[in-house]
Design a protein around this nucleic acid. Sequence first.
DNA 1: TGATTTTAGTTTACATGTAAATTAGATGTC
DNA 2: GACATCTAATTTACATGTAAACTAAAATCA
Lengths: 148, 148
Amino acid sequence: MTVTISYLPSMGRLLNTLSEAACSLAEDYLRPHDLSLAQWVVLSALWRHDGLSVSELSDYSGKKTAALSRLLDRMESKELVRRSAVEDDKRSVKIHLTEKGQGLSHLIDMYRHVNGVLLADLTEEEQKMLLPMLERMLQSVQTKHGKP
Amino acid sequence: MTVTISYLPSMGRLLNTLSEAACSLAEDYLRPHDLSLAQWVVLSALWRHDGLSVSELSDYSGKKTAALSRLLDRMESKELVRRSAVEDDKRSVKIHLTEKGQGLSHLIDMYRHVNGVLLADLTEEEQKMLLPMLERMLQSVQTKHGKP
DNA sequence: TGATTTTAGTTTACATGTAAATTAGATGTC
DNA sequence: GACATCTAATTTACATGTAAACTAAAATCA
């Protein structure tokens, strides 16, 4: 029986550092527009499909409804979005873009800027391999956490 | 002039999701020991080198001293660490493990568990390629943010 | 139909991160 | 030595995330 003890740094930490750096880059990009990344995520869902419910926003964004509730409060007071009641289901709440929120829709391409920086130093081939690798890692982790 | 419009999903988002999933996995692992990931990061520095200053902990962990200050408050009240004055420089504060903090040092290998899950579905070759790719991405992003 | 269970959203309590202001103690320069 | 500047750590104000409790409304079912 052979035991391979290969030295390997913490992938979790590396991914974390990388992710945080990418977020910082995104925040830099959004700051002049007075938008946080969290707010951009919500807007980017609504730019594609206005009038989503809180649950649908949750599915799209991966954020819990508790987090969204407060985030939407702030976005509402910044007049980026507006809540509206649903006739059929009084529990449900639909979120609509205001004119101001709509007016920022050109920022939907923000992620391309980040992609560009992230991938700047990788060859085409590397880029082609990277995505499926990351997706497989995600699958592995999600299988072990919550969705087994 | 040729313009290549290749469809590419948001790498930032993928990295973020992956990183958060890896963190959740780590938190799951630590929960039975009543430790948060942030606390583990501090302890993992001290397990390697006890008596670091707050600034040194900041360098090691990548956390700002402001974040550490409060984190250390909580870790102190949980009796995981102890602050002590430095003779030479009254501004500086050294952080020491308590017996309780020392007693958790077997958790230093937690990250291997996470590594194992993350890499479970990748071939040896893929694993070998992944690390340098992520490191190059990190370099690219850090060059654009703060360290240009 | 009336009681029970689910579901949608919100609220609260808490941990964490950032930026900016503050405090106290070095350091440097004249 | 005295004043200006820098540095280490903390504090404060705020945004965000989680888990758990709560509210109201819909759905189920006996």
